[in-house]
Design a protein around this nucleic acid. Structure first.
Lengths: 253, 253
DNA sequence: CCTGACAATTGACCCAGATCAAAGTCTTCC
DNA sequence: GGAAGACTTTGATCTGGGTCAATTGTCAGG
């Protein structure tokens, strides 16, 4: 069964995507299954399902019963928390291979939203938790990923609590550079995966301030935009300088 | 051997404290060893050492080789990150039962400092990591604690990114209330475990702003100080209102 | 090609909280 | 018990980034 694409019916937008064998999966070596051996992958292959979401769709509502846990296979999703009066703060950014779900808990305390079209590799929560107990390779990797996320959260707290708007945006761009940089290729065209408003939510700013800072970076000759979503870094040293981090903090290998 | 207290010699300030049997340990049911059975505790008992630090001492320097991993038995420690120019942000607050150390990593990316006199229950890192593999009860609990910390970090990010100074301080006081509240007893005397400067570092503010907000809460009749470090909450409803969180967010049971 | 809906930019103005400065208060240690 | 030093409070002033508002792209659909 292969669901038909039907953009008029929002309810129908959860698609079943083309299944890929685990052994050929693009996120094979970074996801929660990274340490699994061939036998373990066979088990996962049997119980996994693919689900797709259109950009803008909510993947998980805060507090809702979490029927599935998932790995992001393609696309970008955001974790956000919202205060009573509507103020919003992004508290996580999920890229391919990142995991959605928390062992031993039936719901999440934030919304998960597709920032672009997203494809997930999902497991029913109950069977997955059982698997977790039986498969140390999975639980070990999950711990490692949680610890990495905690490290990232702590850097993020410094950014939110102490950095200026300029430093925040510079740090954000530097993160994009690091994540998409392929050693050897020097000046890659970078894609902004988020709107100004989403970037503002990530950085604890308003969208206007984000826009003004982008303009400033353009005027300073640090970045150059080809269109709203595509740009190149023209002066990487100046970018690093602008992040406010230690000089040795984000050096590319 | 019981080290002599010698406050003139900073190097000597790491004390060996009185050993307590695991089965009688005050943090027994909350720490990393919470799920261990009697046999497992016997093993821990044999390899643990107690270490004490005076208020203000650094327990672990960022980047230094981590010889021990530890649980906080008594006292309060802070995790802080510092930018080049001296700006500082607290990224964690360790209370009794909290854990210092990260499996699979030989150093930490932040400083750990004793905010009060601190007693640690420590294990050499290498043997502990070996134990971790052999003892699921410990690794499971460690995961759970890391996940809780991640949840807390995300709430903290909302506070840092979106809350006003007043909301930040109210949230901080509310956290103290929750952590020290014993159901039944209505208005406990609360102890401020941190200086104004440390609270400012926690909240992403300056110490002056923290002081002004405390004054405001006093004038509003929300809190009453007996001295700089001791106070009671006089109007808990108003405090909750001031946190900016959902009304149902922090209700005491 | 036009139109409506977003997304982004830019400008004008304002204010919460930072910064700079000066007392005031509590501790600790001779 | 008094002096030194570390915290804390309070005041005056300044400013980075928020808020409000008006344009200006940009693109999908008719």
């Amino acid at each position: 069964m292969h669901a038909r694409i039907d953009t008029d019916q929002l309810e129908m937008n959860i698609q079943l995507a083309e299944r890929v064998k685990c052994s050929e999966c693009p996120i094979r070596h970074r996801a929660v299954c990274a340490r699994c051996d061939a036998d373990e992958l066979t088990v996962l292959d049997q119980i996994k399902t693919y689900r797709s979401f259109k950009a803008g769709q909510t993947i998980v509502w805060r507090g809702d019963d979490l029927t599935h846990v998932s790995s992001v296979v393609a696309g970008i999703a955001t974790l956000t928390k919202t205060l009573d009066d509507g103020r919003m703060q992004m508290v996580g950014l999920l890229l391919p291979s990142d995991f959605i779900g928390r062992p031993g808990r039936a719901s999440l305390d934030f919304d998960v939203t597709a920032a672009s079209d997203v494809t997930l590799c999902s497991f029913q929560r109950a069977p997955f938790e059982k698997l977790l107990v039986e498969t140390p390779h999975i639980s070990q990797r999950l711990v490692e990923m949680a610890m990495d996320e905690l490290d990232a959260a702590r850097d993020w707290m410094v950014l939110l609590g102490r950095k200026t708007a300029r430093e925040k945006l510079a740090s954000f761009i530097q993160m994009l550079v690091q994540r998409s940089h392929i050693p050897g290729n020097d000046l890659p065209q970078l894609i902004l995966p988020l709107t100004r408003e989403e970037i503002a939510s990530y950085l604890g700013l308003t969208l206007e301030t984000v826009s003004r800072q982008f303009t400033q970076f353009r005027k300073d000759g640090i970045v150059e935009f080809s269109d709203r979503r595509h740009f190149t870094v023209k002066d990487h040293a100046a970018l690093l300088e602008a992040t406010g981090d230690d000089a040795d903090g984000g050096v590319l290998v």
